[in-house]
Amino acid sequence: MLELLQHEVQYLALSIMGIAYISKIFWILHFKPMKERTPAKGSHSKAIIASYFCIALPWTMESTIKKWYKWLEFSVFHIGIAIAIIASFLIPEAKHLMTPNVILIFQIIIAISFFVLLIRLTRRIFSPVNRLISHPDDYFSLFLMIIWFFVAFFAMNMDEGSIFFSSYFILTALLIVYVPFSKMSHYILWPFSRYYFGKHFGHRGTYPKIRQ
């Protein structure tokens, strides 16, 4: 059973996600883009690069300067997601790499990510603005991730008999399948949206922003 969860179920889930992602890309591309008919005032390439890097350079946006803690939360839990996904491959395929030190690092990051998401869920429930702009999908996605991090933390102990170990693989598969149909599909939209943002404003010479 565990073998099935670690391999076939994961690959099936990944295949569904892969098909959904490829379909989504084709779906995006079947919409015609707006084209600029004027000569550019700024540099498209510089602006597109700056647009992608805005999430790594929090000082380039007023929102991330003022809400630096939100940026920190974002960074931490996205690293946590990457770690938890990587672990779902390492455990079945390269168990020897899961040394005690690696496990400790993974658990620390996953634990922090878990608490960060709890903070974000609390904010979504109690902040009037966040509550107003939230839909069931926003809550469910967060909830799913919180549970996933919770079981992932204990699954890192590598106790194959533990309920957390099998739950981790079940939840990973569930998450992978749900992602393309939820707000988490921003993974696939984000590279496109930042590309067009950079291109549009770079064309007019307003991006990257001139510093004050």
Partner: peptide, 30 residues
Amino acid sequence: NRQAILSFGVCVHCGMCTESCHYYLATKDP
């Protein structure tokens, strides 16, 4: 069009934009 569906679709409701708007800053109305 492509830019429109991306702007419509990619929002994750993080609320980072909230305090950039003078309508919100002046009224604090969600």
